[in-house]
């Protein structure tokens, strides 16, 4: 086992799959000569060349659209959108085309496309550059929306994504690239669309994903000191959503807190809470609590911004509320 960062995990996944499959090429703003704004693709341009590592104009619509078109011809493009905030400019291509072409044309078209994009707040980038927009993309049938949180999951899921034929939005978190974790030395894949128990516990279920997984793991440590054992379910994939581990855990603990970094209204927490109450009504000992970013645009000021983003203390407080302690 090696200790690597999430940046290295994603980079290795791309590198290994590009070495193995010539149909894969990557395209996006500053991914080539610059080496990627988050340095994920550093060294790729020199190794793979300009044909497979394609610097694009700043034009998200055609980045996504041309990647879709190339995917239709049998290529496996990986389009990088510099941040998920800019993916709004590619929203029509992702939603109206990538997600719909196979279905709408009766199965004639295949879109083996990956769109990689980082989101997340907390870096004083102001309201337009700090969003967590995962939930809106998870809204659409036809897409796979992945948002892994560990080097192991990032590497294994990205590699798996590059070997299947459905369009994928691979959401990274801009503050997690330095996060370290263990990965096996050899080849491995992580199945897509499977939630994962990241911590076992008997008292309360915490459902989360992406950066908030780490916040919840911190919260669980604090809670353990107070005698509360939290079970943490990492969704890893938002669509298709794997609820079985959530239901199983909830039926054991009878209470849940859902933690996400995005906006609360119509968010991931709303979906999870609704599904829990429908499936586990007889097992409920407390209302499901939703923890999310406060329902406001993120400000530039550091103190105000931090006040709007969930942290371990927020999670601890919510857990105690559903535990009635």
């Amino acid at each position: 086992m090696a200790q690597i960062t999430i940046r290295e995990a994603i980079s290795q996944a791309l590198w290994e799959e590009m070495e193995a499959n010539e149909k894969i090429f990557i395209m996006g703003e500053e991914i080539g000569v610059w080496g990627g704004t988050y340095a994920v693709t550093r060294g790729f341009y020199d190794h793979f060349g300009a044909d497979r590592v394609r610097d694009t104009p700043i034009a998200e619509g055609v980045i996504a659209g041309a990647a879709i078109g190339a995917a239709l011809t049998g290529c496996r493009p990986v389009a990088e959108i510099m941040t998920i905030n800019f993916a709004l400019l590619a929203m029509d291509m992702i939603v109206n085309h990538a997600a719909k072409l196979r279905y709408m044309f009766g199965g004639q078209f295949s879109v083996p496309l990956i769109v990689r994009t980082p989101g997340g707040g907390g870096r004083q980038l102001g309201a337009t550059h700090s969003q967590t927009l995962d939930a809106i993309f998870a809204h659409f049938p036809g897409l796979r929306v992945l948002a892994p949180a560990t080097p192991y999951d990032c590497k294994g899921m990205l590699k798996a994504a590059l070997r299947q034929d459905d369009p994928v939005l691979f959401i990274e978190n801009a503050t997690l690239y330095q996060k370290r974790g263990e990965v096996p030395d050899g080849e491995f894949l992580v199945p897509l669309g499977k939630s994962d128990i990241k911590r076992s516990g008997k008292d309360v279920t915490i459902v989360t994903y992406s950066k908030m997984l780490h916040v919840c793991l911190d919260a669980a440590k604090q809670l353990a000191k107070q005698g509360i054992e939290a079970e943490i379910v990492d969704l890893r994939t938002l669509r298709p959503l794997d609820m079985e581990p959530v239901f199983e855990s909830f039926k054991k603990t009878n209470r849940a807190v859902v933690v996400e970094e995005g906006y609360p209204t119509f968010g991931v927490g709303a979906e999870i809470a609704a599904r829990i109450q429908a499936e586990c009504f007889d097992y409920m000992d407390a209302p499901v609590r939703r923890i999310a970013q406060l329902d406001v645009n993120l400000p530039y000021n550091r103190t105000l911004e931090q006040a709007a983003i969930p942290n371990a203390d927020t999670v601890v407080k919510a857990v105690k509320e559903v535990m009635y302690v």
Binding site: K23, V62, A64, G65, I68, A70, A71, T73, G74, M93
Partner: peptide, 20 residues
């Protein structure tokens, strides 16, 4: 059916053929 959407897609088809 989305006005203009076929242009990025068309560029992508051309890219795909050229790449291959």
């Amino acid at each position: 059916a989305i006005v203009g959407a076929q242009l990025p897609l068309g560029a992508g088809l051309a890219l795909g053929f050229k790449y291959q």
